[in-house]
Design a protein around this nucleic acid. Structure first.
Lengths: 193, 193
DNA sequence: TTGATTTTGTACTGAGCAATCCAAAACGCC
DNA sequence: GGCGTTTTGGATTGCTCAGTACAAAATCAA
């Protein structure tokens, strides 16, 4: 009935995600999004309501992928402490990349850039936090049943603590902290479980 | 000899700081800076080289003030653990303010917004991190001498850990985490020392 | 092939951006 | 009061921003 699209919508979201991840929301212009996706302005605005809407889609996509990876680790057969060590180890690796690739975590970046200024994004962030929190808490509770993690400690508090440690490592990495120090933070965090 | 200034330069930096702190670097326009300082464009550009230069001055000023407060706590007569508890307690208070006042910490915000994109600012952030690190490490070492903190642990690693915990609490607060959870993170962090 | 429908490229909109220009104003000094 | 110097306000620069308008192109059903 009509002219079909020349591009894949999901691919476009992926490309936009790369751009937003690299530069942040404000610093990514609609022209940057055209360049990144290879689409013209019309196609972008015909497909997505606005830059903000595209960002929301890209952020959700990022969360989906990231949480998939987290779940894969948490659902593996490792002892609970090892699972958490693996999660923190990823942060060290990611934050030690060369400058041009070191863009951190889009969720953390967005918490700081938009968390207190964009109610819609704040809602997305809040739901994502809860999801990660529940997954981590469940893994910690399992570790407590296995005797791998101290049963006297509150699993929820530990889950909040681990998530905060991850965010903190990402902030410190941006302040110039090197690999050794990050590994020290990682060890101290795991020892606290 | 010449027409004198009608304003105080340091006051202007303070006012600019408020604006940058509230909205971040990118999202603060030069017009916003005029409004915040009460100065005209000419006065701003006659006094400061650029928006970027003014931001650098404001950031340094923020660090000066913030580090003054931190030093006051660390140099007090409290036991080391209590000092750290006090530092973390401030974060909980600050992040629980009503939305319009909840702007977090300019240093953390800047780490995420500019840390990996602005070499000059990155240098300032790095030096500030080192300063905080040294102060905290010294306090922890003193605590170890007093028997307040486990001597078997590496004071440097603990210092990095505490700084990361602070950054992490600020990120989590932006993701919507409430007071109770932040207090839990605080307790877990202190228990880890 | 025609016609209905959607996508696409391009030009454009109005607004806001950081920064500059310049002439008028405001001083201290003589 | 006049002079040299600096500050100040306001207009202006050239540019980029997010988003839109519109006509040409592409498809498919008939």
């Amino acid at each position: 009935m009509a002219r079909p699209r020349k591009f894949d919508e999901e691919r476009a979201v992926d490309a936009a995600l790369e751009a937003f991840w690299t530069a942040g929301y404000e610093a990514t212009s609609t022209q940057d999004l055209c360049d990144a996706t290879g689409l013209g302005r019309s196609s972008i605005y015909n497909t997505f309501k606005s830059k903000h809407d595209l960002f929301r889609r890209a952020l959700l996509r990022y969360m989906e992928r990231k949480n998939g990876n987290i779940d894969a680790v948490l659902e593996s057969a490792m002892p609970a402490r090892e699972k958490i060590r693996a999660l923190l180890g990823v942060i060290v690796e990611e934050e030690q990349l060369h400058a041009e690739d070191r863009r951190g975590c889009l969720v953390v970046n967005t918490c700081i850039e938009l968390g207190s200024r964009d109610p819609e994004v704040a809602g997305v962030l809040e739901r994502d936090y809860r999801r990660r929190f529940e997954a981590l808490k469940a893994a910690i509770e399992a570790g407590q049943r296995d005797g791998d993690i101290d049963r006297a400690k509150d699993a929820g508090a530990l889950a909040h603590f681990v998530i905060a440690a991850i965010g903190g490592m990402r902030v410190s990495a941006r302040a110039g902290v090197g690999r050794q120090a990050l590994e020290g933070i990682m060890r101290t965090t795991i020892d606290a479980l």
